[in-house]
Computed example of a mutant assay.
Amino acid sequence: MKLFIAAGAFILFVVPHIAHAEDAPRFNGFSSGVEVSHDRISVRQDPGNIGATRSARKDGVGYRTFIGYDVQIGNIVLGAEGATGGGGKAVRQTGTRGQYLVDPGLTYDLTARFGSTLTPGLLVYGRAGYRWLQTDRTTIPAAGPRLVREQTDGGITYGGGAELAVNRHISLRAEYNRTVYDRTLRANKAALGAVFKF
C-alpha cells in the first residue's frame, strides 16, 4: 500500500514538473487503458456456516483494462467507463466447524465519473457504478465432504481519483475505490493506471 501511495504522489506532484504537457490538453473523446492495483478482499460474518466469529481479509495484486468516453465542458468533465480485470488473493476464514475459502476471479464493471480540472491537464474526479465479481466458494467442514461452488456477485462501487495529462494522447492516473458486493463480501482497490486517448 505504501508503494501505491508513493507512486500516486509522484504522479500528481513530481511528473507535472518534469513532463511538459502540450497546450491545455482536454479530457474529451474515447480512451482505453490499463491499471495495476493493490486489492483487499474482506469476508465478514460467517457465510460458510463454519462457526467463524471473526472477519477475514487478504491483500493481493490486481489488474484492470478499460475503455471509456469523456466530455469536457469548461472545467467540468463527465465520463463513462467499462472494464474487466482480475487478481487478488483467496481469503480463508476459519471457524469451530471448519474453513471457508473465497477465491476471487474476473471482475466486470460499468461506472461513471464526474470531475473538475484544477489546472489545465489535471483532473480530480469521483466515480460510481456497479461491479461484478466471479468467485469460487469452498466450504471445508471439520467432518464431511468439501463443497465448492462458483458464484457471481454484484454490488455498488464508488471512489475517486486524479488524472494527469502528459500530452494530448497519454495521461496517468491514481484512483481508490470500494465495492460492497453484499453484507459479507467487500473489496478495496488502490490503483495506478495509464490512459491512451484516441
Rank of each mutant, 00 (worst) to 15 (best):
N28T: 13
A52S: 13
D103P: 03
Q45V: 08
F4N: 10
R131I: 00
N177G: 11
I41E: 01
A83N: 06
L185G: 02
A19W: 07
T111S: 12
V91T: 12
R113L: 02
G129P: 03
P141C: 08
N188E: 11
D109E: 08
G160V: 04
G33M: 04
D23Q: 15
V124T: 12
Q45H: 15
L147T: 14
G68F: 02
K2S: 15
S55T: 05
A90V: 00
F27H: 09
R186H: 04
E150Q: 15
Y108Q: 10
G95E: 08
I18K: 07
T152E: 09
G95V: 07
Q99S: 15
T135V: 11
R54N: 14
F114I: 09
E163Y: 01
Q151C: 07
E81Y: 02
K89Q: 06
G8K: 06
G161K: 02
N188K: 13
G155A: 04
I73H: 10
R54H: 12
Y181D: 00
G193C: 01
F4L: 13
G86D: 07
S55A: 11
A190S: 11
F30A: 15
I73V: 14
S42H: 13
P16S: 13
I67M: 12
R26I: 12
F114W: 07
S42A: 15
L3N: 10
D109C: 01
H169Q: 15
L164T: 05
R92M: 13
Y176I: 09
K2R: 14
F13P: 02
N188A: 09
G115C: 04
V195N: 08
A162E: 07
A143E: 10
A90K: 12
V91M: 09
V36K: 09
D23K: 15
Y125H: 10
A19V: 11
W132M: 10
E150Y: 08
Y181G: 00
Y100A: 08
T96P: 02
R44P: 00
F27L: 02
N49H: 06
L110M: 08
L110Q: 06
L192P: 00
G95P: 07
A21Y: 05
N75G: 14
G88M: 08
L101H: 12
G144R: 14
H17A: 13
A7M: 12
T157R: 12
Q45E: 11
N75I: 01
V61T: 14
T119W: 06
A56L: 01
A174E: 06
Y69Q: 09
L123H: 05
V91P: 05
R173N: 15
G79F: 02
D103A: 09
G129Q: 05
A162I: 02
T179K: 04
T179D: 04
G95Y: 06
S32I: 11
G155M: 09
F114D: 04
A24W: 03
G154F: 02
I18W: 01
D182F: 00
L3H: 07
R40I: 10
A83V: 07
V124Y: 03
V14K: 05
R146S: 13
G98V: 04
A83P: 08
Q93S: 07
